[in-house]
């Protein structure tokens, strides 16, 4: 059975299916039960699975992530929701100092199979500190996996894979495209493997790497530039930010000889730098131009009245493509 779902519906369905499929799976977080989550990602799940499986917690992110670690140590598979990415900071010590390191420091004796889901990113006229994009913090932490879906189909398949993964996964959900579009999503359990990027648009002239809500912005820029100038850009959705899919990135750059990274996170020390470094290591001699980053500016994500100027736009991406191809 296949229907058209939004990303939010696809995520809800993945949670529903895993709750049904594996009794070790529990959801916990603020307002996820009776309220169904502030974005409704857990809508209806409390009624269906009860309070032991879908848990409204006290308002404490360190508490949520810390107890999830304990549950995971002792045989459960917690899927924690942090209401917005910028609210995760009280829980960072638990995540970085404990979840990420447990397998390593117990020499494989204890693992922490858990998922931290959290809405992230700008573009929805959110209040202050509701629009951050700090994926690089997590990708800088050995022991964590970092996943960002950009479509309903991938969101469901990636979340199922994340829940089934033996290690802690930070699962970042781009709020801007939660309800922005629908696509066909199969009804049952299926997996999109972690660690694999996807070529969403083929091209020969330049490789664009993007994720989250920026993927669609990059795709539109690629379509416009083909109409205007005839250049065919390959667009790659990285899907997993850590560990990166080196092979797909390098294969594409070897083919096109040019690359551009687009992310809404701040430019400095963002994932773009890491991707460029990878290209430098593996495909330098294929390059015909320096690799550019089109990124959020290095300012605190501004309040919503000017967030559209903070975020990379199609115009900025097109300009980056032109400068790279005409280099």
């Amino acid at each position: 059975m296949s229907r058209e779902l939004t990303m939010l519906q696809a995520i809800q369905e993945a949670l529903d299916l895993k709750l049904a499929d594996d009794e070790r799976v529990v959801l916990l977080g603020e307002d996820i039960g009776v309220n169904g989550g502030v974005f409704r990602a857990t809508d209806g799940l409390l009624a269906k699975y009860g309070e032991k499986r879908v848990i409204d917690t006290p308002l404490a992110e360190s508490g949520i992530i810390g107890t999830a670690i304990g549950m995971a140590l002792n045989g459960m598979v917690p899927v924690a929701e942090i209401q917005f990415l910028a609210f995760i900071f009280p829980g960072l010590e638990q995540l970085l100092s404990h979840a990420a390191r447990m397998r390593h420091r117990t020499r494989g004796q204890f693992g922490v199979p858990m998922v931290i889901r959290t809405p992230y990113g700008a573009g929805i006229r959110g209040p202050e500190l509701h629009s951050e994009s700090v994926e690089a913090f997590f990708a800088h932490t050995p022991g964590l996996k970092v996943v960002v879906p950009s479509s309903p189909y991938d969101a469901k398949g990636l979340l199922i894979s994340a829940i089934e993964d033996p290690d802690p996964v930070v699962f970042l959900e781009p709020t801007r495209i939660y309800r922005a579009f629908r696509e066909e999503v199969p009804g049952g359990l299926y997996r999109v493997p972690l660690g694999q990027a996807k070529v969403v648009r083929e091209g020969e002239d330049l490789s664009i790497f993007a994720w989250g809500s920026m993927l669609r912005t990059a795709l539109r820029a690629a379509e416009q530039i083909e109409q205007e100038r005839g250049w065919r850009c390959e667009v790659i959705d990285l899907r997993t930010l850590y560990p990166l899919d080196r092979e797909t990135i390098i294969t594409s750059v070897q083919k096109t000889g040019r690359a551009l990274v687009v992310h809404e996170a701040h430019k400095t020390a963002g994932l773009g730098a890491e991707i460029i470094s990878l290209i430098n290591d593996e495909a330098l001699l294929y390059l015909r131009a320096p690799v550019k980053r089109i990124a959020g500016f290095d300012v605190p994500v501004p309040m919503f009245s000017v967030e559209d100027d903070y975020l990379p736009t199609e115009a900025r991406i097109r300009q980056g493509i032109e400068e790279t191809i005409l280099f």
Partner: peptide, 22 residues
């Protein structure tokens, strides 16, 4: 209308080179 360039103001007391550039 809000001035988008104001997002670069007051990130630091003294603006570093990369912010001036951006």
């Amino acid at each position: 209308p809000a001035d988008p360039l104001a997002m670069f103001d007051h990130v630091y007391a003294d603006e570093p080179w990369h912010l001036a550039e951006q």
